[in-house]
């Protein structure tokens, strides 16, 4: 993995940062695309210091083809190749379906689904030319099982799973693999806000009995990004303590 170049969208914080960290530990150069330009630069600087990998944080809007195209060109100019893409950037705007505002539906679909399509389209073309590359999309178990209050989010993540399988089929003949990781309940800033009662209810649904850590998701991504998974494409790995089987 040493010397390969990975782009992680939304890699400045949260699960994206854990993914950046896991890949950096393997010697992968890390390019972070995030709307939070300062946080992206800070994360990339800390990875450079900790693991000695090259890296850069760029301000990128994943919903804009122009922004993603410019950022891809910058990566190729600076790093020479783009070997790994992790489409991780995502948001939530929760609410019961019958009360959900159109703008909240649109915002979630735009970033979580259209953003993955744009990243796959622009970076995928580069990878097809290279005849090499691997893409890992971050889906969610709610895209498989649904979740009350997350009509927009679950639809976007189910969309990511379909998109993963179609792009895997379209890119396979060029040796470019596309897979997805679907996290379950992972300890993040979002789940820290839950009450004890909510957390206990949630844990009761998880056969392994506890919430996952961002690093659990990152390890699955690192596997799918590496040659250890060379014969795996179009698959979804649920990292959810067995909540979905």
């Amino acid at each position: 993995m040493k010397g390969r170049n990975a782009v992680i969208t939304g890699g400045a914080r949260g699960i994206g940062e854990a993914i950046a960290r896991a890949l950096a530990r393997l010697g992968v150069n890390i390019i972070i695309w995030d709307v939070l330009a300062d946080a992206a630069s800070a994360t990339s600087a800390s990875l450079n210091q900790e693991y000695g990998v090259k890296g850069v944080g760029l301000a990128v809007d994943v919903t804009s083809e122009a922004s993603v195209t410019a950022a891809s060109e910058q990566v190729i100019a600076e790093f020479g190749s783009l070997d790994i893409l992790v489409n991780n950037a995502g948001i939530t705007r929760d609410g019961l379906l019958i009360r959900m505002k159109e703008e909240d539906w649109d915002a979630v679909l735009k970033i979580n689904l259209k953003g993955v399509w744009i990243g796959t389209k622009i970076v995928g073309r580069l990878m097809l030319k290279q005849r090499r590359g691997t893409i890992v999309n971050i889906a969610s178990v709610v895209g498989v099982m649904g979740n009350a209050g997350q009509a927009n989010y679950s639809a976007s993540k189910a969309g990511v799973i379909g998109l993963t399988k179609t792009s895997a089929k379209e890119f396979a003949s060029r040796g470019v693999r596309v897979n997805a990781v679907a996290p379950g309940y992972i300890r993040t800033a979002m789940t820290d806000k839950l009450t004890d009662e909510q957390r206990q209810r949630m844990q009761a649904l998880i056969p392994l009995g506890e919430l996952g850590e961002p690093a659990d998701v990152a390890d699955a991504v690192a596997f799918l990004a590496s040659d250890a998974s060379r014969y795996i494409t179009g698959q979804v790995i649920n990292v959810c303590g067995g909540m979905v089987m």
Partner: peptide, 11 residues
């Protein structure tokens, strides 16, 4: 050429 080649050629 396959269909993907044609798409890439056109681009």
């Amino acid at each position: 050429a396959d269909s993907l080649d044609i798409a890439e050629l056109v681009m």
